[in-house]
Amino acid sequence: MEANAFDAGMSRLKKRFVQTHYERHDRLEDLAVTLQQPNPPASAAQEVESILHKIAGTAGSVGFKELGEAAQQVEVFIRDHAASNQAAIVKVLDAFLDVSLEFCDPIEKLMPQSAGDGFSAMAGTTH
C-alpha cells in the first residue's frame, strides 16, 4: 500500500517534469535564436545554463537519465566557455535541443489528453 502511494507520487512528479520540460525546451529554442544574434545579452547564456542546470538535477531522478546527462554536459561546457566562445555555445545547445526533441516526441504521445485521464499510462515510462 505504501509502495503504491510512493509509485503514484513519483508518477505524478514524472508527469510534472514532462509538462515543465516542454516549456523549458521552448524557452531554450528561443534562447538559441537570441544567442545567434550579434552581441547577445550575457543574461541569455546565463538563463540557458540555469535551465540546463535544473534539467540536469532532476531528469535522472524521474527516469530520464540520458536527458539529464546531456543537459549536464552542455551546462558544464557553457559554464566553462560562457565568456569566450559564443559560436560553440550555440552549437552545443543545438545538439542538446536535438536530444531533448527525441525525449519530447515519445513523451507527447503519453501525455494525458485532459486533466483527469491517462495518468496511469505515464507510471511505467522511463527512458
Binding site: 510512493f6 512528479l13 510534472r16 535544473k54 538535477g57
Partner: peptide
C-alpha cells in the same frame, strides 16, 4: 530554488 526538487525530496524522504 527549484520547487520540483523540493517536491521530489518530500516524496522520497517521506518514503
Amino acid at each position: 530554488d527549484d520547487p520540483f526538487i523540493l517536491e521530489l525530496l518530500k516524496e522520497i524522504i517521506g518514503h
